[in-house]
Amino acid sequence: MNHDHPTLVSTRHPVGGSDQPNVQGLERIASLVTGGVLLGHGLRSSGLGGWLQVLLGGLALARGTTGRCPAKRALTPTPLESELAEENRWSSAKTLSRSITIDKPRTELYRFWRDFSNLSRFMTFIERVEVLASDRAHWVARLPMGKTLEWTTRLTEDRPDELLAWMSEPDAPIRNLGWVSFRDAPQGKGTEIKAVIAYEPPAGKLGYALAQTLDLLPTMKAAQDLRRLKQLMETGEIATNSTRPATVRRPVEPSPTVFHHGSTGVH
């Protein structure tokens, strides 16, 4: 696989895709009909329910007449996600990515990441990663209510000081892959790290929509985890506001979403 994808993770739409009609055929006709019915009914009903029907009817009519639906567009896979799904023969792919600059040499950061058991030191949802062999690792992720999710990955690419890529083994509960690249920051300002995680939302397209609506959280979690890595590498400690030394292990976060795998599908 090509991990130096020219496609940015943050590119949401294909070229010219953001303004193209995306509602066609029967779907468009259905929108027009539903819109008309709702609008007509809403106008004849009173109270809040009536207003709501008018509003929804209007939106559906607009969707039908213009052939454009922003909501649907937001739920469409990005170009990179389409590429990844095709390459890996997944029903769909969901990606998460963040970049961070860490004021340490590339080698040091690469080596730290290369020992996958280090990952649980900064990834909040990862309970532990056991290194099984130099190219295989077993991941244990925390889920709410004391449950865990486990899978094994194998290294698919290892370019010292540049790139590490891994992929879950076929029996993973949620198929996933990831890669992290290391690049010199300009003017000797450390190393630019870009981490990408992709997974196959379990229920295909529907799972994608669900994962998408919960997207903000895991993306922020990913950013937070990378910040923790930066804190650890630069200062030797992870920032905390606690005023007492921890007596218990980090609590399981109540969030239903997970950075390193799609727990969104594990309900």
Binding site: M220, K221, A223, Q224, R227, K230, Q231, E234, T235, I238, A239, T240, N241
Partner: peptide, 11 residues
């Protein structure tokens, strides 16, 4: 960059 353990909120 490092002193805020809750960086996501200001981000």
């Amino acid at each position: 960059d490092n002193s805020n353990p809750n960086g996501q909120q200001t981000e």
